[in-house]
Computed example of a mutant assay.
Amino acid sequence: MASGVVHLDPPPAVFRAMLEGWAVQQRTRFLKATTIQARIELVKRFAAYTNQYPWQWQAAEVEAFIDHLRSQSHPIVVSTARGYQNTLRLFMEYVTDSRYGWQRLCEDEFGQVPTQILHEWNSVAHVTEFEGDPRRRPLTYDEVQALFDAADGRVQEIRDRGRKGALAAMRDAALLKTVYAFGLRRREAWGLDLTDLRHNPKAVQYGRFGALFVRWGKSSRGSQPKRRTVLTVPEMDWIVPVLDQWLDEARPLFNPGKLPALWVTERCDRLSRRSVNEAFVDARDAAGLPAELDLHCLRHSYVTHLIEFDYPERFVQDQVGHEYASTTALYTGVGDEYRNRLLKRSLERQGKLWGAS
């Protein structure tokens, strides 16, 4: 609040100043603008629901707000509720922190002070690591093949109908195969440039596709996108001719000029992130796969299949850029065949030990 300024309507002026100050605090931490804006909008939404200001809020208001969102025709899920509660908790921590002076100002102006309204008894407990839709899972080998067959089939189908879009369908098929072959997130695949294709001196047989340099990895706590190099593994070396064909035959037909992007559009622009999702949905629906499967399931499939190929967990963790091994474990959904293979090995080892004794 500006000193020496008398506001005709102090409550909304103080609330606006609180929001502006909180936004500055978050920008100082280099949080993303989209994250900050979403948090600000939620606080405004809560204020509109309660028809009160932060110095008037009580625990009952936030409890009624979450209960209201749960009773809608499309109720919020647990992870969304926790996100909302965390956002409101962070805002209240800001306005109740004595270093910012909001409690003193509110006491002088309104005779009330803001207090923390979220505590352990009205917040969602985080009791499990994974809270996503249990129907979302890694694809089986047959489902991956069906997805790729459907993506390739769309190319010929469009050509047979004499319609435009066959070239884009060819691009989408190569894109989906790349996402799976390197275990990429959507943003990581979207941000690939030609210069991100790397040689691996230990696998010269893969030529310019021995590795991918990922520059748009997932960031956290205001950090820049994390970078990593993903090596081409022998079980996925079928991606080499796919990318060869894309670069040498298909991509030049888009006339991209000096555009650095690996995935380009007919308008000589980088493919949008939304279009990456749509490429998966089109192939998934054409293959008749369950609607709950999404693009990220290919990344889960990559992790699972590398584990089933007997790669060490640490190698898999580095390939996909997970900070913690527990995150990689959540992505893994190995099949019965793999577990039976491990069981057989264990039994064989025990048999040898018994034979030796």
Rank of each mutant, 00 (worst) to 15 (best):
G4P: 02
A13C: 11
V14D: 08
R27K: 14
R27G: 09
T28A: 14
T34N: 10
K44I: 04
A47R: 06
N51V: 12
Q52I: 00
Y53A: 14
W55F: 07
S71G: 11
H74Y: 10
V77R: 14
V78W: 08
T80R: 15
A81M: 14
R82I: 02
V95M: 13
T96S: 07
D97C: 09
R104L: 09
C106T: 04
C106V: 05
D108K: 15
D108Q: 15
V113A: 10
P114Y: 11
S123W: 08
H126F: 12
E129T: 06
G132E: 10
G132Q: 06
D133S: 10
D133T: 06
P138F: 07
L139V: 03
D142C: 04
Q145K: 15
F148K: 03
D149E: 11
E157A: 04
I158S: 11
D160R: 15
L167K: 10
A168K: 08
M170N: 13
A173W: 01
A174M: 03
R187K: 03
A189Q: 01
G191Q: 09
D193Y: 09
N200T: 00
K202Y: 04
A203F: 00
Q205T: 05
F209K: 02
L212W: 06
W216H: 13
K218W: 11
K218L: 03
S220V: 03
G222M: 14
S223L: 07
S223V: 02
Q224W: 08
P225K: 05
K226W: 01
K226S: 13
R227S: 02
T229M: 04
E235H: 09
D237C: 11
D237M: 10
P241N: 09
L247T: 10
E249V: 14
F254W: 06
N255P: 02
N255C: 03
P256M: 00
P256G: 01
A261E: 06
V264S: 00
R267C: 04
L271V: 03
L271T: 01
S272Q: 10
S275T: 12
V276M: 08
V281D: 15
D282F: 04
R284N: 07
A287P: 02
A287I: 03
L289D: 06
L293V: 07
L298H: 04
H300W: 06
S301H: 06
V303A: 15
H305W: 10
L306A: 05
D310G: 04
D318M: 13
V320Y: 00
V320N: 00
E323L: 03
Y324S: 07
L330R: 07
L330S: 09
Y331C: 06
Y331K: 11
G335S: 13
E337F: 06
R339K: 15
R341N: 12
L342N: 07
S346C: 12
L347F: 10
L347K: 15
E348I: 05
R349A: 14
R349K: 15
Q350G: 14
G351F: 13
G351Y: 02
L353M: 14
W354V: 04
G355K: 12
